[in-house]
């Protein structure tokens, strides 16, 4: 063991002395796997035409990306963190503690979250209330809080087909899950009037009871990505999965999408706000690196430019819902406006 440890430290010393000579000339990006395809599309176009090397884009999740981003300032830290949610105050503090004082927040568009089932199966027209009634761990029956008895969709809403309840939802480590809990389950809890009834029954725990999902195998948490959800639906034709809009559109020949409140998800209905389940997408730029890492600002400017992130651009083509207020993002990048 000691010989291994010795060699390891010798290796590290050797490597450091050699590494001192290398300087970084490309932008490094890390973060959300939802933003990853958009970031790679921009990186590819950037490398092709901007005269800078193609940025390196890593994925690994919003939280992991922001953690890496907040490690400090310098060539060995990433320049941009992609996130499918807004940065938390605790993360801003962690950043500041590590010397990352100025963070530029750029919101570049929206991501729709859709519910889809196998192409050969029944069509679904959901409301958030259906999802709440179908997936909540405990629901109110005859004034009493009982374990959710529903086993098929027609039991929660007679208009839905008589198909067993089997939902593949994102695991808790995904940013998508937060949106699902907030915009579908909590909304459904409110819409169905269950929240008020719960408040009377359990008091302050009402909100928590709302979003606690059943664990009897009818709501399956998927910790992997959408490809895993798709293969689950492939093998279980009665399942309904939660996907990103872009993933659904790339696999539209295998999946049929359900409507929510009667609205079919599309870039148009999400941009107009008619379709209720969507979330903003962000990337965060380290201001201290602008001017140090060549091409950093140019990359951010290209990302939010009208040709790329606007309607009809390559990002919209892939499934991004363009931000109606893109000009705001462009101004933020141009002025390098940092968060307070």
């Amino acid at each position: 063991m000691s010989c291994i440890r010795q060699t390891a430290s010798i290796l590290a010393i050797l490597a450091v002395s050699a590494g001192a000579a290398a300087a970084r000339d490309q932008v490094q990006v890390a973060g959300s796997s939802t933003v990853l395809p958009y970031a790679t599309i921009v990186a590819e176009i950037f490398g092709e035409s901007a005269g800078f090397p193609t940025p390196v884009v890593e994925s690994g999740g919003s939280s992991a990306g922001l953690k890496k981003f907040c490690e400090g300032v310098g060539e060995n830290t990433v320049d941009i963190a992609n996130a499918s949610r807004r940065i938390k105050d605790s993360e801003i503090e962690a950043c500041r503690a590590a010397g990352v004082a100025d963070i530029i927040e750029v919101q570049f568009g929206y991501d729709g979250i859709v519910f889809a089932s196998d192409i050969g199966g029944n069509a679904f027209a959901f409301t958030p209330a259906d999802w709440y009634r179908g997936l909540a761990a405990q629901v109110i029956v005859d004034g009493k809080l009982v374990t959710n008895p529903a086993t098929s969709w027609d039991q929660v809403n007679p208009d839905l087909p008589a198909q067993p309840i089997m939902a593949f939802i994102p695991g808790t480590k995904h940013g998508t899950r937060e949106v699902f809990d907030l915009n579908v389950i909590e909304r459904g809890c409110k819409d169905s009037g269950a929240e008020q009834a719960l408040a009377a029954l359990v008091g302050d725990d009402a909100a928590k009871t709302c979003t606690t999902l059943r664990t009897d195998g009818r709501a399956v948490e998927i910790d992997g990505d959408y490809t895993e959800t798709l293969s689950r639906i492939d093998s279980n034709k009665e399942g309904i999965g939660v996907f990103g809009l872009s993933f659904y559109e790339n696999n539209a020949s295998k999946l049929q999408v359900a409507t929510m409140n009667g609205v079919t998800p599309s870039t148009e209905t999400i941009a107009s706000g008619e379709y209720p389940v969507s979330r903003p997408l962000f990337f965060y730029v380290k201001k201290a690196h602008i001017g140090v890492i060549p091409g950093l600002k140019d990359y951010a400017e290209l990302f939010v430019s009208d040709e790329i992130a606007g309607p009809g651009g390559p990002l919209a083509e892939y499934g991004l819902v363009p931000d109606p207020e893109l000009a705001k993002a462009q101004a933020v990048v141009a002025d390098e406006t940092a968060l307070d």
Partner: peptide, 10 residues
């Protein structure tokens, strides 16, 4: 190698 020795990512 990365956090202590400061070698580049990826």
């Amino acid at each position: 190698f990365i956090n202590f020795a400061g070698l580049p990512q990826s």
